[in-house]
Design a protein around this nucleic acid. Sequence first.
DNA 1: GCCTCTCTTGGAATCGATCCCATGAGACTT
DNA 2: AAGTCTCATGGGATCGATTCCAAGAGAGGC
Lengths: 346, 346
Amino acid sequence: MESVGTIPRTVTLLDVAQEAGVSRSTASRVLSGATSISADARDRVEAAAARLGYRPNRAAQSLRTRRTRLVGLVLNNLVNASFHAIAEVLQQRLDDRGYQVILCVTGADEDREARYLEMLAEHQVDGVVVIGTGRNVALLERIVDEGIPVLSLIRCAPEAPGEAVLADDSDGAYLATEHLLDAGHRRIGYIGGPLEANSGRERFHGYAAALTSAGLQVVDDLVVRGPFLESFGEKALAALLDRDDAPTALYVANHEAAFGVLPELRERGVSVPDDVSLICHEDVSWFRYWQPAITVIDNGATELAELAANRVLAAIERGPGGTQSGRAMRVGARLVQRASVARPRA
Amino acid sequence: MESVGTIPRTVTLLDVAQEAGVSRSTASRVLSGATSISADARDRVEAAAARLGYRPNRAAQSLRTRRTRLVGLVLNNLVNASFHAIAEVLQQRLDDRGYQVILCVTGADEDREARYLEMLAEHQVDGVVVIGTGRNVALLERIVDEGIPVLSLIRCAPEAPGEAVLADDSDGAYLATEHLLDAGHRRIGYIGGPLEANSGRERFHGYAAALTSAGLQVVDDLVVRGPFLESFGEKALAALLDRDDAPTALYVANHEAAFGVLPELRERGVSVPDDVSLICHEDVSWFRYWQPAITVIDNGATELAELAANRVLAAIERGPGGTQSGRAMRVGARLVQRASVARPRA
DNA sequence: GCCTCTCTTGGAATCGATCCCATGAGACTT
DNA sequence: AAGTCTCATGGGATCGATTCCAAGAGAGGC
């Protein structure tokens, strides 16, 4: 049945009402499940709606009710790390509660982030979850002032408005370092992001704290910090291993660096964990396939996404002005023991 | 500055008009870039809009213009394979043209897919891109009949309405098999999905075609088909290698199976490519880190997403009834040579 | 000086829902 | 039998934009 040229006439609530022989008001009440409806009217309207294949127009609903049941998700990318896990879980949890996700990939560009935030506000989203660059605080504040709750996920600028759901980076780093200490290591190398980055700073602090608790001091020569790049991981590894007193264990604090470290270790013929033990922060699907399977700190992407969904929905349901600023919640890290850590050689 | 309790009053076009001392009509014309506006009015309206921080209400615009600039993306998951690459690229390309993406993850569940499609129609999306289950053809047809273009990506049910953008699976399989043949292999094992699956069928055909062109016949014992599961890959590998006349090369037709095959090869101490050569269909980020780096068939996720974006936008801009049914476009496969293929032992 | 034509502008209808308010029909009280 | 109360319903305003239509202001032709 070809339907070339037919103008698709959409079925409106008025059509349903007429078909059912009632007014728009009554039809609306039936379909939005309100009270005070006679059984007769209910049946007739429901039958009419089904018969006509009625589908409410959300744009019209939104205009009237000021709720779109749309939530913006702003993040760096979907390729790396836990971001796509977060996007998937967040979408599921929000959908369970009747909300849909508008996906915005910023590529860590603050201008693009700003454009997306403006656009989301134009679309009248009910809330925003942002894994942000941290460089649009003023804009975020404006958005919150307009009554749209904002939830910062994973990263959070100091003065950002709204709640935050964060990974417990320093705890994770502490766990990792402690695990290496427990295995008997005393010279533990650190490869991680710059101190300017939130996660870089916190993970370094966790590392340092674990050493201190064990009565050790941070040895500057064993600490290498640099950009979140594969190539940096490679160079950092070389710098650490080419020393006379090379570390017996490594804590690699982000997966970008790990992607450089792992192939380079193999390249150099360094045996893990016989020659050197290794823990990476952030689990990546294939770390368990690696030879040896990599012991990691799992920062709980799924839990982060679930908590973020719950918190942003709570803020939405609190109604306009429902944003509570300042509170941060942290999802604890978890040590996943696999096969890349052993006792140091005697 | 605490703003607890302030009712956020949104700035409307009327506010801008009053501030600028013109009518709503004129303000609207200025902001939607229409013609026939005096320079004076233009300046005043633009200044007023900027001063008040005016932001158009898209719900209201959509209601009036019947365009939301929203596109639905319906897919299986974001975790596996090329799906998150597709989601990311598609989002970018659509955003470049002023469209946003509503993300819907179905988990390959046809009921959830149906719910999402209904929901997208309610949201009045301008178009839908679906990596589908293939089991909601009737619903897709209804949606197309209502004037919403649908584009099937990667998978396409036989009678699905709208255009399709597909990977050239049989070409890719042909390329893979041919590459192994060129290296001198004659006994080439096939591990892939069931014939009922589209990709399973096409990839097997490509494999068979390459053998035939080389004057060889398909040896049933060298072909193992089964579900898209890691565990299947493992079992299939065992079945092939435990034979007397084991193959000298393997074509693994999907990444799920590959995830079983690769660790199992290592487990068994089979050396790649010395003992057996290997090509996997679908590139996965870490295949290049594997030891040896895995030669793959890249099905072109980026190109698929770009083409899909272009086609769905073209259909949208063609206007209501702009859906052209039946045309499929295929993105060619590409052989990425790495280190897992060598000549067979003499 | 009058008529026509173009350019710019404002008024009002419209998109498709929701929801306040008023009204009518019954049920029940006294 | 009259009055009160509740329940169900319909009318109409409203959300915030776009856009058709009519009208006013000048410019220019004759």
